[in-house]
Each structure stands twice: as structure tokens, then as C-alpha cells.
């Protein structure tokens, strides 16, 4: 198991990948925040922010079909979560679906939520496509995410593959012995596998800790490569952030 398929465009040279990871995370948060907090009815501003995200995807050489394919799953979840809006909002009925009525107010709110969610997902897709996990971790540390969380994420990233592989090995061993026939036995089997994995994760944590101490670990993981902020990178992040904030602010002008 690996996350390598996620950051396929991290090695592609572009103005986006030349910005250090902290700048990319910052830009993503600004774009997502600006989109998510647009007031209802701000369709023009939503369109402009979508255009900014699409332009950044093009600059980073991330093909639109890749971005759309990555949007499909999270957007499906958003769709499921927001379908209820169509019928729970009181208002003028537009159509009847059995015992419930789709209201005009509900349809309006559903469209705005879906629009905001879709556009806010675009910068997240851009970030994950152009940033490797170690880079992302470095960016989070620069943005002052608690050291414990950054260290835990870094180690979890290394241990996750091992843990999942171990989980799969235990499942394969159980399958090869035809264990877990019937719901109750299967439930007990999966619980046993999960608990065994948990025990092994703790053992591995202790071994990792001992190995890290032997290498001079004093509570924080060192950075191998310090990020290089060029004037151009600073200017690019500032320009995109100011543009995005200006678009978002224009939606609140009287």
C-alpha cells in the first residue's frame, strides 16, 4: 500500500511546485476558506474562484480529467450529505417525491452548498497532486502545527504501510485456514485481527522509539532539506491570496 499515486505531479516542474510546501498549504487554506464562506447567491464570485483554481491546476500541469476523477469520490459524499437539504427546508414546493416535497428554498440551498463544496475541493486536489507527503509534513511544521502532531504524522506515514501490510497478512492467513465462517465467528475473527494489529503497532512503536533514541532522537524529527523561499515564490503566493481575498470580499460589498 502506498500514497505514491496521489502526488503524481509533485516532480513536475511548474510555478506551483516551485513554491515551498508551506506556501502551497497556505494558499490552499486561503482558497478553501474564501470559497466555503461565500454568502448565498454569490454565483459570480464562486465562478471567479473556480476559474482561479482551474488556472492553478493548468499551471501545475494537472490534467482536468485527473482533477475531476479525484473530485468524484469526495463530491459523491458531499452529494449524499446535502441531498436532505432539498426536502428539509420549508418553502414553496417544486416537486413531490413520494411523501416529501422538494422546495424552492431547499433547491437553492442545495445548489449553493454543492457549488461551494466543489470549488473548495479543487485547491485540495491541487495540493495533494503536487505535494509529496514528506513535503506536506515539512509545510505543516513551518506553519506551526504542534510538533507532536507533525512527528506523529511523519511516523504514522512510515508505519502505515507496515501496519496495513500486517493487517493484510493476518487476514490472508485467516482466509487460508478458512477461519471466520458465519457472522459471529467472522466478527470475532476481525476483532482478533484488529487487536493483534494494535498490539503489534505498539510493539513496533517501542522498537522504533529505541532505534530513534540510538540515532540521537530528542523529541523532534530533524528536517533534511530546509525549504527555499524565492522572491518569486513569495510574490506568487501573495498575489494569488490577495486576488482570492478580493473576490471573496467583493461578495460582501453592499
Amino acid at each position: 500500500m502506498s500514497f505514491r499515486h496521489l502526488d503524481r505531479f509533485a516532480q513536475v516542474r511548474s510555478p506551483v511546485t516551485r513554491v515551498p510546501a508551506a506556501g502551497r498549504v497556505f494558499g490552499t487554506v486561503v482558497l478553501a476558506l474564501a470559497t466555503a464562506t461565500l454568502p448565498a447567491g454569490a454565483w459570480v464570485q464562486l465562478g471567479l474562484l473556480a476559474a482561479v483554481s482551474l488556472a492553478l491546476l493548468a499551471i501545475a500541469h494537472v490534467p482536468l480529467r485527473v482533477a475531476l476523477a479525484r473530485l468524484a469520490w469526495p463530491l459523491g459524499l458531499v452529494l449524499l450529505a446535502s441531498l436532505a437539504l432539498l426536502v428539509v427546508m420549508p418553502g414553496e414546493p417544486l416537486a413531490r417525491l413520494g411523501p416529501v416535497a422538494v422546495t424552492a428554498q431547499g433547491a437553492d440551498r442545495f445548489a449553493m452548498v454543492m457549488g461551494r463544496a466543489m470549488v473548495a475541493l479543487l485547491p485540495a486536489v491541487l495540493l495533494v497532486s503536487t505535494t509529496s507527503f514528506p513535503e506536506l509534513l515539512q509545510g505543516l511544521r513551518e506553519l506551526r502545527v504542534p510538533v507532536a502532531v507533525a512527528t506523529a504524522l511523519g511516523l504514522a506515514y512510515r508505519l502505515l504501510y507496515l501496519t496495513v501490510d500486517e493487517l493484510e497478512r493476518l487476514q490472508r492467513a485467516a482466509r487460508s485456514r478458512h477461519a471466520g465462517g458465519g457472522v459471529t465467528r467472522r466478527r470475532h475473527l476481525i476483532t482478533a485481527i484488529a487487536a493483534a494489529t494494535l498490539g503489534r503497532a505498539f510493539v513496533r512503536a517501542e522498537r522504533t522509539h529505541a532505534a530513534m533514541l540510538a540515532r540521537g532522537f530528542r523529541g523532534t524529527l530533524p528536517l533534511l532539506h530546509a525549504p527555499v523561499w524565492t522572491y518569486r515564490a513569495v510574490l506568487n503566493v501573495a498575489a494569488v491570496s490577495i486576488l482570492v481575498l478580493a473576490v471573496a470580499a467583493s461578495a460582501r460589498l453592499p
Partner: peptide, 22 residues
């Protein structure tokens, strides 16, 4: 100073456990 390894292991376990369907 055990914090990093322990939190890392449990974070990895939570991710892995969320893949198991009971």
C-alpha cells in the same frame, strides 16, 4: 519523548482499523 512513536503507531493503527469492515 515516547510521545512521537506512540502517537505515530496509534495514528497508523486508526487508519488501518478504519479499513476493516465488521
Amino acid at each position: 519523548e515516547r510521545e512521537g512513536p506512540v502517537l505515530g503507531a496509534v495514528t497508523a493503527f486508526v487508519f488501518a482499523a478504519q479499513m476493516l469492515n465488521f
